[in-house]
Design a protein around this nucleic acid. Structure first.
Length: 358
DNA sequence: AAGACTACCAACCGCGACCGC
DNA sequence: AGCGGTCGCGGTTGGTAGTCT
């Protein structure tokens, strides 16, 4: 039973690619193309690689005009904006960033951008992952002395203010149901110091509202607004139209929600309000900025988005820090309830001891 | 100095979608 | 319509190297 392997695993090399393999693959594709069949390609070249591996190597590394590392603030902004809108659809996000691969963006998001937004507070999943890995590495690792480019594309380490970390109980949402200490009392919200490039706290409604305004547009003064007379549809210069062409129905669903709640989509950034301001081709510039500074944040928009997400749980996974724990169903006072609700709302599979002990 | 911890990223894996027969 | 092969995607893992204690 089970799925047939795509190649003969026994006769296929795995792991890092050698320069010789790279040059073989690259020169062949440059001369002949892929031939529309990745599976057959390695045999043609004489590579002992899986076709999928060849494809990945080409797409992520060998393909011409690829950029590696050094994400700009504008790229950060685009990634953030798109992630909030469409979730972890890396290929779609990558399509808006020339020279970037989905893998690159995914890695960048997971290792830097997410933390940039979350603050230094690691998720427990990360924590356990790294703990387990560290234990393993303690056995197997051999430290080298090579140099590595750790240049960060952004300057956010100072922005991880302690008060701006995620709620304690959010960081436990992926945890199994185990006795936990009670969450600390809520901290007073800090002002949203975007002027200083500080990251906003997403734990209070006002900051969350501002964030969503920046990411998605303005919020109506009227919480029950259904008229939307002043809604301005996004400019159609191809990008947004591409979204409509590419996206399955749930994107339409979100668009309706956004429409319904006057999110006309503003420009700018979840990270830095000063960048991404002069590039007309960027997605985040598709919309007119129209923040009327009204503070009546309508949480229903997020609620609806989360509700819509019930059908597509992947889209908001990891976005709880955007939307807030209340919206995500993490509103109760006991830890168990918190975990249960959080897990249920995200369709997480039941957790077992082995998940915890890994 | 050494071990533990953390960060990063390339690569792998499995699944669903798609397509041709 | 059903089936099998392939593609493309997103999640995850493994290896390496920097940083911390």
């Amino acid at each position: 039973m089970g799925r047939a392997p795509c190649c003969d695993k026994a006769n296929v090399k795995k792991g890092p690619w050698s320069p010789e393999e790279d040059s073989k693959l690259k020169s062949y594709i440059e001369q002949h193309g892929t031939g529309g069949n990745w599976i057959a390609l390695p045999q043609k070249i004489g590579l002992k690689r899986c076709g999928k591996s060849c494809r990945l190597r080409w797409l992520n590394y060998l393909r011409p005009n690829l950029k590696h590392g050094g994400f700009s603030e504008e790229e950060d902004n685009i990634i953030c904006s798109l992630y909030v809108t469409i979730g972890s659809r890396w290929s779609v996000i990558a399509a808006q960033l020339p020279g970037r691969t989905d893998n690159d963006i995914k890695n960048y998001w997971n290792t830097k951008l997410k933390k940039k937004l979350l603050g230094k507070h690691r998720t427990n999943k990360d924590h356990h992952h790294h703990q387990a890995r560290s234990r393993k590495q303690a056995i197997t690792s051999n430290n080298g002395n090579g140099s590595r480019d750790y240049s960060s594309s952004s300057s956010s380490t100072t922005a991880t203010h302690h008060h701006q970390q995620q709620p304690y109980y959010w960081s436990h949402m992926h945890m199994p149901v185990l006795p936990l200490p009670p969450p600390p009392p809520p901290l007073p919200p800090l002002p949203y110091a975007e002027e200083n490039n500080q990251l906003p706290s997403f734990n209070d409604q006002d900051s969350l509202r501002k964030l969503l305004i920046k990411l998605g547009g303005k919020f109506s003064n009227n919480n029950n607004s259904s008229s939307d007379h002043d809604y301005q549809p996004p400019l159609d210069d191809g990008v947004i139209m591409n979204f409509h062409h590419q996206f399955p129905p749930y994107y339409e669903e979100e668009q309706q929600i956004l429409h319904h709640h006057h999110i006309a989509g503003s420009s700018s950034s979840c990270m830095n309000n000063n960048s991404a301001s002069n590039n007309s081709s960027s997605v985040v510039e598709q919309f007119s900025q129209n923040d009327n500074n009204n503070n009546n944040f309508n949480a229903a928009i997020v609620g609806e988005m989360v509700s819509a997400n019930n059908n597509y749980p992947q889209r908001l996974d990891g976005l709880e820090f955007f939307y807030g724990e209340e919206i995500m169903g993490v509103t109760t006072t006991t830890d168990e309830k918190i975990i249960e609700t959080g897990a249920a709302s995200n369709n997480y599979p039941p957790l077992h001891d082995e998940d915890f002990l890994q």
